[in-house]
Design a protein around this nucleic acid. Structure first.
Lengths: 220, 220
DNA sequence: GTTTGTGAAGGCTTTCACAGCC
DNA sequence: GGCTGTGAAAGCCTTCACAAAC
């Protein structure tokens, strides 16, 4: 039983639209905090620096949530976006690579709060194994990856190894049956079509900013 | 004296092109490791899962680096991309928000290696102040932000506070003269046109993956 | 022969603007 | 009056395909 009706084939919905739904969810959260219970797309756009037509179009992919002449009911909108994004189900994460970034994400609230839960952190370097992370998880040996994925019902694999081992970790994850991977290693990992891989390279953001600093200095 | 000539107004170059230059740089790094010294756009595309026309077009914004019939000289390409992105200058970062993410980034190699250097980490919570981070930096009081920005010649401000304080930290950074900001708080911060703000919301990636897991389960 | 650099085409995304509804 | 939902327009990005260069 769903609270919303899809208007279009979900496979045709752009990742950009999905990413924006997350943003809208943050906005709606803030409106709830402030105690607002009805909001128009214009008001949302004005408050959070968005485009009202885009908000309406994004939401329209999933049904008709609004009331013409009135706007959207904030708590209903919240419920619908949560359901669309599947945030009403628990998602179990396994982090592979217990370096700085891996251990950090392990206790980063965004990664282990509400419906997301880190169920393990692995490394192949024996000197890191058994260091208890501040979150209370032990670092385990990555040779146990396959076993752990099954035992702990991992939904999402997170790669935080150096570039050199990322592809092999990805292969092991796919082999173990993981179909959804978040990769922080600075390399494009390859996986079968059926596996969803999302890559995030934090250094790219710094390098982009560096480019803009360079431009700024030239224009002086 | 620059190693490359711009063909177009840099302001018209898309951020997507700049982000890809970072990716190309990683690829070129790997080619250098492997000892390859000439590469065609086709070969680059094949090896790293890219599009050859796009590589050529991206590079063409900044000059003519290739030799027709031959390809690109790997070390020259490396030098040029480094220069375009401004990675030949030191970039000094100040992190504000000494929670899990902030302290993690502080010793994440991508953030404090080569030309990027974390010169300070601040928090307004007195219980966090003076905890030495593993990188050896002390957490300082964020009331000193303006002073520290000037003293330590900060180039890039990094916001790792909760959403609720992000806008105020951003305002303080702008006030202190920082023109380039990387924001990890899950909120769109507002800044004057002259300030470049890049936002990264790690939770969005998880929520996107969660959406795809939901789709997958429905289609069963 | 090979490969670059690039106009043109195609595809995708955002924005406009208004009919339809409250 | 107001606001949503949406076709059409505009804008942006990627890909194709080939002339120019080696």
């Amino acid at each position: 039983m769903t609270a919303y009706k899809r208007h279009v084939d979900p496979a045709t919905i752009s990742d950009l639209t999905i990413a924006r739904l997350s943003i809208y969810l943050r906005c709606v959260d803030r409106l709830i905090e402030v105690g607002i219970d009805t909001v128009s797309s214009q008001e949302l756009a004005r408050r959070f620096n968005l485009n009202s037509a885009q908000i309406r179009k994004d939401l329209a992919h999933f049904g008709e949530f609004g009331v013409r002449g009135v706007g959207y009911n904030v708590s209903e909108l919240h419920r619908c976006i949560v359901e669309i994004l599947g945030l009403d189900s628990e998602r179990r994460l396994l982090i592979v690579g217990a370096g700085n970034l891996g251990t950090a994400l392990c206790h980063y609230s965004g990664f282990s709060g509400e419906n997301f839960l880190v169920v393990g952190i692995l490394d192949r370097d024996s000197s890191r194994i058994s260091d208890p992370t501040p979150a209370g998880l032990l670092v385990e040996d990555s040779v146990r990856l396959g076993e752990i994925v099954k035992q702990r019902q991992v939904d999402i694999g997170v790669i935080t190894t150096p570039a050199s081992s990322a592809q092999s970790v990805c292969d092991q994850m796919v082999e173990a049956g993981i179909s959804t991977i978040l990769n922080f290693a600075p390399i494009r990992v390859r996986a079968p079509e059926t596996v969803m891989v999302k890559s995030v390279d934090l250094k790219i953001y710094l390098e982009e900013l560096s480019f803009h600093l360079t431009q700024r200095n030239r224009n002086r």
